[in-house]
Amino acid sequence: MQSFKEAFSRHLRHPSTGPVGWLVKQFLVRRNGYLEKEAARLLGIQPHDSVLEVGFGPGVGLQYALGQMGGDGRGKVHGLEMSPDMIHSATRRLHQHIASGKLQLTLGNVMELPYPDNSMDRIFHVNCYYFWDDLDQGCKELYRVLSPGGAMVCTLNSKMVKLTIEKDFNKYADKYDPDGYMTSLERTGFTGVRMEHLKDGEKSFEAIFAGKE
């Protein structure tokens, strides 16, 4: 059991192929689906926006963001992911949007975002900041690429994250503390940083908001 927990934890941080990887992918789709939907909704995406999701996993959040944007504007959704297997999975799910030019997927790391300064109007991520190697560096990069007047949203289910950590299924979430993450956001220049406790039907979750003046 301990070796399974170790493998599950490792795949949560960096999803890959294999039986445990498949299980983690299903877990992400089932457990994170509503968090992805809410993050995209809370951003207030407009048809002309450039939108970035960091750590998009199977691509559920990208799909919601594209739906919020609609197909008539000049906006575009960008996805950054460090797992080649998740890029493959999201490409299969969203190949039509990639072909139309509305979606671009990139292999990379939040520590060094491959986007120009002030290039994104909206940024979101779900259940991933606590895996970053350096919170301040990740927040600094997000701040750099967010345009003035832009917004960022992070959604998470604290209760579920704590449970997976306590049960040893999420051993690499060592930077989980939301207060520490919000402190990093403020330290790197973000304004209006706050956390709200919200609900999607019967499901409770937290949303962390931040902006750039």
Results as ranks from 00 to 15, higher is better:
48 H>D: 15
49 D>Q: 04
50 S>Y: 09
50 S>E: 09
51 V>L: 05
52 L>I: 13
52 L>E: 09
53 E>L: 01
54 V>G: 02
54 V>C: 07
55 G>V: 10
55 G>P: 09
55 G>D: 12
56 F>Q: 02
57 G>K: 00
57 G>A: 13
58 P>Q: 04
59 G>L: 03
61 G>A: 13
61 G>V: 07
61 G>F: 02
62 L>R: 03
62 L>W: 11
63 Q>S: 15
63 Q>L: 11
64 Y>D: 13
64 Y>S: 14
65 A>Y: 02
65 A>K: 01
66 L>H: 06
66 L>D: 15
67 G>K: 08
67 G>M: 11
68 Q>F: 01
69 M>V: 10
70 G>A: 09
72 D>I: 11
73 G>H: 03
73 G>N: 08
74 R>Q: 14
76 K>V: 14
76 K>Q: 15
77 V>N: 05
77 V>Q: 05
78 H>P: 02
78 H>A: 06
79 G>L: 02
81 E>S: 08
82 M>T: 11
82 M>D: 10
83 S>N: 07
83 S>C: 02
84 P>D: 12
84 P>N: 10
85 D>T: 12
85 D>I: 10
85 D>R: 05
85 D>Y: 13
85 D>S: 14
85 D>K: 05
86 M>D: 08
86 M>I: 04
86 M>P: 04
86 M>Q: 10
87 I>V: 13
87 I>M: 10
89 S>E: 15
89 S>T: 14
90 A>D: 06
90 A>G: 03
90 A>H: 02
90 A>T: 04
91 T>G: 08
91 T>I: 08
92 R>H: 09
92 R>E: 14
92 R>S: 11
93 R>L: 14
93 R>G: 10
93 R>K: 14
94 L>V: 08
94 L>P: 03
95 H>T: 10
97 H>F: 14
97 H>G: 04
98 I>W: 08
98 I>G: 07
99 A>M: 13
100 S>I: 03
100 S>W: 09
100 S>N: 06
100 S>L: 08
101 G>C: 02
101 G>V: 05
101 G>F: 11
102 K>Y: 14
103 L>H: 02
104 Q>S: 10
104 Q>Y: 07
105 L>E: 01
105 L>K: 00
106 T>G: 00
106 T>V: 12
107 L>Q: 04
108 G>W: 03
108 G>Q: 00
108 G>D: 06
108 G>P: 01
109 N>E: 10
109 N>I: 09
109 N>T: 12
110 V>R: 01
110 V>P: 00
111 M>I: 11
111 M>K: 04
111 M>A: 15
111 M>R: 05
111 M>N: 03
112 E>N: 12
114 P>G: 00
